[in-house]
Every structure is written in structure tokens, then in C-alpha cells.
Design a protein around this nucleic acid. Structure first.
Lengths: 267, 267
DNA sequence: AAACCTTGTTCCATTATTTGAAACTTGGTT
DNA sequence: AACCAAGTTTCAAATAATGGAACAAGGTTT
């Protein structure tokens, strides 16, 4: 009767997995139970099953559960197969070198922004700890440009799922403000983050669209108000647009020819 | 009657997820069906459910399934929470700087080696494409030292799951050869890879053990026969041992104090 | 040391969900 | 028009999930 999860047993089990991941730290069974809708034996069995399946890892010393190693292995496959990330990598590299600022590559995940790749101008890549991170869609450059180029039904569905927390004085605080912004973005073909998420942080963002106009992802160049301003970022628009086009083209023609690459790792 | 998966519906669904990941490329429903034990509607529903749950991503243009973005998000949590990886990071950095060779941090996943972190001496980190990778346990330095320090029952269970593919002329080709090698490793406290997995690639590996003697993971320093030899690698034994000890200590005392770190990302 | 928690684990009759053979739809091919 | 392959839906039978209750196992208090 009226469940949040849907998708039967599997959906429920995955909800438990999310719950553990959301804790951000190893968690005890009782902690999960306290904030769960499931009765004790049901939750217990889910946790057991997930642990058996290595989706959760149980630490017997501390009696805690944490997301398991199987996820890391699966995510490796996800990242390598996601048509965007591996195809985009050389282009993101080139863009990063060209602009000398932080570059992000993102996709839409549910109604959130998921960062798939990142180049930090200053300190060399530290990807795993950044890629995989999620952020709000309504107040980030990449989020807004992706929203702007979905079809109307999809856009509204995602808008309905935004929480509209006000981070700064520039944050778009409601659905109407966001809709208006999306119109602007559609008109220009790209968008900005005007310190909407964090004070002093600005960016220019470009959608990555397939030939058919489907949203594949988005690119952004980020900087700070100390170093530049929106007009300064706008100078990157041509190279951003070109990079997005190249990524879209390559993603289109991608057909996994180099399967079975015996990449030399050595332990 | 006699299933491989176990763990009910959830286990079966996750087996399908693994199957998709194992393809290494986006895959059609019919391809999955062809190599699946499940009847058509059953497999169909699993794929649907997993897609709903964003564990799989469906590409409508190509009619293919690939591992989904939710996995990347979950893996991010897994990596950050796995007691070893974040705790080990600074020590792995230091070790990498000290030895100037490729350094690997690994854990046991099922009966395989899972690389959790990596420092490449030459080109700066490219983690996501390396971490998450799995390798054989019986013919890698990290794999063997972890096996050596499991309890007997666990060791035998893992040995039984090895496939003993012969990669080079030095590969340990059967369980007995491996058992003998494990005895040696237990006697010394550390181990080598003598070109057992790839010609010209050698390493010295050190287990990371908790106070209670539980295997937490392993560290290795890898090089080539062009640059050095086993005696040369042995010079790294003290710093490796010390690093492993530091990681174990920190993993022990880790209690997630810095939860709620509002890390400044900016888009 | 007895009574009393709190946390984790097992039982088992009831209930709801998964299951899969068969039938059907869709789009492309002979 | 007939055919074929890939994907999707149906529905009664089989199976697996469910959760109230009762049971261990450590700890703490009286």
C-alpha cells in the first residue's frame, strides 16, 4: 500500500544499499533500523543478502556495514562503458590544457547532476574522490544546461524533483525562476553559474547533445570571482562548444572496436 | 534446482547486473538472453527493474544496456567509506614518492584481487580507470600475500576458486605450487611477483594486517626487469613494511570524525 | 546474582511476488 | 502476403518475501 521504492524486492534491497551509502560512514544495523520503514527481520534479511552479495561489507570488529567492494568493481565497468566518459577523456584533457581552469564533465542521474570526470588545473587529477560525486541540478551550470535541453515532459519531471535549497543570494529559489533561466539558456545555447551554489564560484557550461538532440551530458569551465568574471568565462564559449561537439560526434561513432585490449598493468 | 546465484531475487538480479558489466560494452537484450539461464520474461523483467533503478542504463538509439550511473555514485561512497582506501591515501602518496616506482593498494574481492588505489611514478594519477580493476589472486604479488595471511579455511576456499591460467613461464600453475609459495611468504612476511603474470613485470608485495592479524589489504611496489631485479626490489622491504604498519594502525583508529565535511567543490 | 535492558537472530503461518509457457506485437525481410 | 526475429504482455501455478513474536547474547542496573 503506497510505497516509495517500487520495483519489488530488488528495488527495496537497493534502497537499503542507498541508505547505507548515504550514511557516509560504516553503520550499525540498529542505526539503519531506526530510520527504516522495514520491520526488523525484513531489513535484517536485506542486509544479509547484500552482504552475501558483496554489495555491502561487514566489519566484524566494529559490527558495522559499509558499501562493498563489488560496487567498486561494477562502477569501474560503468565508467568504462558509459559512452561519454572514456570517449570524452582526450577532449576533456585538451580543453583543460587550453583553458587552464577546472573542467567538469557531468551527466544527469535521476534528477541530480553526477560528475563523471574532472580536471583540476592546479593539482593533478584525483578522480575517484571527485567523479561519482552528485550535486543539485537547479543551481549548477552543468545541471541547468542539461535541464534546458531535455524535452518538456522530462524537464518538468526533473524540476518537480528539485528541492530548491537556497545556498547563496543568487540561488534560483523556485521552479518559475528556474524555468525562466532555462528559456534563456535555450536561447543562447549555453549557460552560467552566477555564484548560485557557492559564493565566489562561477562557471560557464555547455550541453553535449547528440545529433538527434538528446542530452548526453554537459561540460563546464569553473573559476572564481577573484580571478575572472562572467565576461571572462564567456571567452571560453567557442572552445567549449567545439569540445562538446567533438565529444558528441565521437560518442555517436563509438562502437567498441578495442574490446579485449590486453592493457599492460603489471600487478 | 541447483542454482549458482543463491540469495533469492536480489541475488539473481545482481547476477544479471554482473553479466552486463562483464560484457565490457553496451549489450542487447537478445545477447543477454542467449547466454542466460533465465527464461525470456524473467530476464526481461530483471533488466527492466535494474534499468528503472538506474543500475543499468538503456540507450534507446542503439537498443543496448550498460551499467548505470547509480553504480558510479554508489562506488564513490564505497571508496570513501572503505576503511582502507581513504586512510591509506597519504601513506600511499608518501611511499610512492619515496620509491619512485608504481605503487598499488589492493583488497580481496571474492577470490580476486581488487585494486583500490594506484600511484604511477611517471604520469600523474588516473585513478578511476585503474582503481576498480580486478586481477587474479594466485599470480600477483598483492594477491599471494593476502592469501598467505588468511586463516586456513579461507585460504583453501579461495584457492579452490582460482582458475590457474598460465600467463608466463613463471606462473604458478596449480594449487600445490601456490600452497608452497604461500608457506614461503608466511615465513618471510612478504612476497614477490617473479614475472608470473606478465613477462618483465616484477614486484614486491606486503600484506596489511590488523592487530588481530586479519588481512585488510596489500601494498606492492612494481617495476620491470629492465630497470631492476628482485634483489633491487627487496631494498624497499623496510619502507613497505613501515607503510603497511602505518596504514593498519590508522585503519584501526579510524572513527569517522570528519563527517559532514562541507568540501568546497564549485560546480 | 537476579532482573532488566539493548542489539542481533531465528521461526513459521500468512501473504504477496516471482515465475515462465504461451500468446501477442512490432518492425523488418523474403 | 507470408515469414522471421526481437521484444513485450498475460495469467494461473509455484515460490519466495513478509513480519509478529519469541529467542539468544552481551551489558548494565538494582
Amino acid at each position: 500500500m503506497g510505497h516509495v521504492t517500487g520495483d519489488g524486492t530488488v528495488g527495496k534491497a537497493l534502497a537499503v544499499l542507498d541508505q547505507v551509502a548515504a550514511f557516509g560512514r560504516p553503520v550499525r544495523f540498529s542505526e539503519l533500523l531506526a530510520q527504516s520503514d522495514f520491520p526488523k527481520p525484513t531489513l535484517y534479511r536485506f542486509v544479509q543478502t547484500l552482504t552475501n552479495q558483496q554489495m555491502l561489507a561487514y566489519d566484524p570488529d566494529r559490527q558495522t556495514y559499509a558499501p562493498g567492494v563489488r560496487l567498486v568493481r561494477l562502477a569501474h565497468a560503468a565508467w568504462e562503458q558509459s559512452t561519454l566518459a572514456p570517449v570524452a577523456r582526450p577532449h576533456v584533457d585538451a580543453l583543460s590544457k587550453a583553458v587552464g581552469e577546472t573542467v567538469h564533465l557531468a551527466q544527469l542521474d535521476n534528477a541530480q547532476v553526477l560528475y563523471i570526470d574532472k580536471r583540476n588545473a592546479a593539482n593533478p587529477v584525483q578522480m575517484y574522490s571527485q567523479a561519482g560525486k552528485v550535486g543539485p541540478a537547479y543551481c549548477t551550470g552543468v545541471g541547468k544546461v542539461m535541464l534546458a535541453f531535455l524535452d518538456d515532459a522530462a524537464t518538468e519531471k526533473v524540476i518537480a524533483q528539485q528541492s530548491f535549497h537556497v545556498f547563496t543570494e543568487y540561488t534560483l529559489a523556485d521552479a518559475d525562476a528556474l524555468r525562466h533561466e532555462l528559456d534563456e539558456i535555450r536561447a543562447h545555447g549555453y549557460g552560467f553559474d552566477r555564484e548560485e551554489h557557492e559564493p565566489g564560484i562561477i562557471c560557464i557550461a555547455m550541453p553535449i547533445l547528440s545529433e538527434g538532440g538528446r542530452v548526453l551530458g554537459a561540460l563546464s569551465v569553473t573559476s572564481t570571482t577573484n580571478r575572472t568574471n562572467l565576461a571572462g568565462l564567456e571567452a571560453y564559449e567557442p572552445v567549449l562548444r567545439e569540445t562538446a561537439a567533438k565529444i558528441a560526434r565521437d560518442a555517436q561513432n563509438w562502437s567498441f572496436p578495442d574490446y579485449e585490449t590486453k592493457e599492460a598493468t603489471g600487478i
